[in-house]
Design a protein around this nucleic acid. Structure first.
Lengths: 242, 242
DNA sequence: GGGTTCTTATTTGTGTACAAATAAACGACG
DNA sequence: CGTCGTTTATTTGTACACAAATAAGAACCC
């Protein structure tokens, strides 16, 4: 069972009861909750009740709290006694710094410990290419967000440097909500088209074995995408101010 | 009260009882434990007892566990049911990847969001320079390790990019134990001399406001230091094999 | 009506008892 | 004597009850 299946599963309690160890149970809860936060099942500002979640998962608050505490350390949640556990807001100014760092890290992904191109990698990116083409034909916010996440994970595979993978993942999940939260409905089709173009370009670079090129393309698109977002929200704020 | 005083304090229970909120109490426990791990008060392989630690801190296991869980996420501890909570071993091969990443991040510290040179920064690095000179005159493992930690934190101040600071800090604490664990006693004086030289060079670059130069020097020394360590342990292993 | 104080409901934090898992010690058996 | 299985001690994991903190609402006063 892949990670995506886990996060997309509706009955988490079943999964947890089948898990062998405490570590596995933690991993499931962590993945599910992080996915729900990033897919805006829990939009920013949502209050999560430990009691409610625990009963949904069929466990007590104790093991659940570990997952919540790590997510708090990740910057996705904020717990306060007497108040509750809240999903953090998406702060564009704060995320600007994260993006600056992600730009550089993405370039490193193409340089540090490159993974040799093998059949598995080719299949992975080919699958993403197909999904991108399908999404392009029928733009959809949720499908877009899911492909964005899966594409990130595929891109990570270009390097074998584990710490780089870990750091990049944390930062990705810190930022990936901006798309679903800040892209206006009328811009969706345009953004989807750009994103799918990026996937095709990068899949092509990967197919040729030029990971450094893939990384540079990725970096360029990240940079441009964030700038579009910035100007778009700026205009939106201006319009609202008027 | 500075962070160092907190970590160096002998009576953690007092500090905890004075802390106002749960978050403060967590921060104290986390800092103290991380410091003990990195200063080899708890050498790699040490088994930490939740019960014992909790009673030392004058609290129950519940709040302590949060600190332990975050340290586990940091890669400094490993908890397993029925076994215990163990301080992770220092694996040179694993840390090679971390170092590769740290090299690049240190260069970024000089490039991203440079902090304007002010009086506070000058005083900070000047203080480190004095400590380096004193250490150089009387080499000592513990003083060396403490200066290494404090110097890292000072270096971090050269950038205002918070995510970069956070990431660098996590990676630093993941690696900083290699010096105390792997440097042979006979090499200590030599290593101290090199390290103090690095501090003087970097403090000088900072004084001139050239943070990028400071970052490049830092990167060079990190790289060379790790290579020395690698060859030294390789020889040590060879000698032992003979 | 406005403001202030008190009450109360709700939520996370903490303490404690017990369950589950592991490993070491022990003993039976071949 | 060694090996396998069992027992037992120890440790973290989990459940649950209660404490502490916060915020919203009620009651009261001015």
């Amino acid at each position: 069972m892949t990670n995506q299946d886990v996060t997309a599963s509706s009955d988490v309690a079943d999964l947890l009861s089948q898990a062998a160890s405490a570590q596995e149970r933690f991993q499931i809860m962590y993945s599910v909750l992080r996915d729900r936060i990033c897919m805006l099942v829990y939009p920013p500002g949502t209050q999560l009740s430990e009691e409610t979640l625990a009963s949904e998962f069929g466990i007590s608050r104790s093991p659940l709290r570990k997952a919540l505490q790590i997510l708090e350390a990740d910057g996705l949640l904020l717990s306060q006694q007497g108040v509750g556990t809240l999903v953090t807001e998406v702060d564009l100014q704060e995320l600007t710094q994260v993006y600056e760092l992600r730009l550089e890290l993405n370039e490193l992904t193409g340089k540090l410990c490159p993974r040799p191109l093998d059949r598995e990698l080719a299949v992975l990116f080919n699958g993403l290419k197909l999904r991108a083409e399908r999404l392009s034909a029928a733009p959809d916010r949720t499908v877009f967000a899911r492909l964005n996440i899966d594409f990130f994970h595929a891109f990570q595979q270009l390097t074998l440097n584990v710490p780089l993978q870990d750091v990049s993942e944390k930062l990705f999940y810190k930022t990936c909500r901006i798309w679903l939260t800040l892209i206006p409905e009328e811009d969706l089709q345009k953004e989807v088209a750009i994103f799918c173009g990026e996937i095709l370009e990068i899949a092509n670079a990967v197919r040729l074995g030029d990971f450094q090129a893939a990384a540079l393309i990725r970096r360029a698109h990240l940079s441009m995408g964030f700038n579009r977002l910035k100007t778009a929200t700026q205009h939106g704020a201006d319009a609202k101010a008027v």
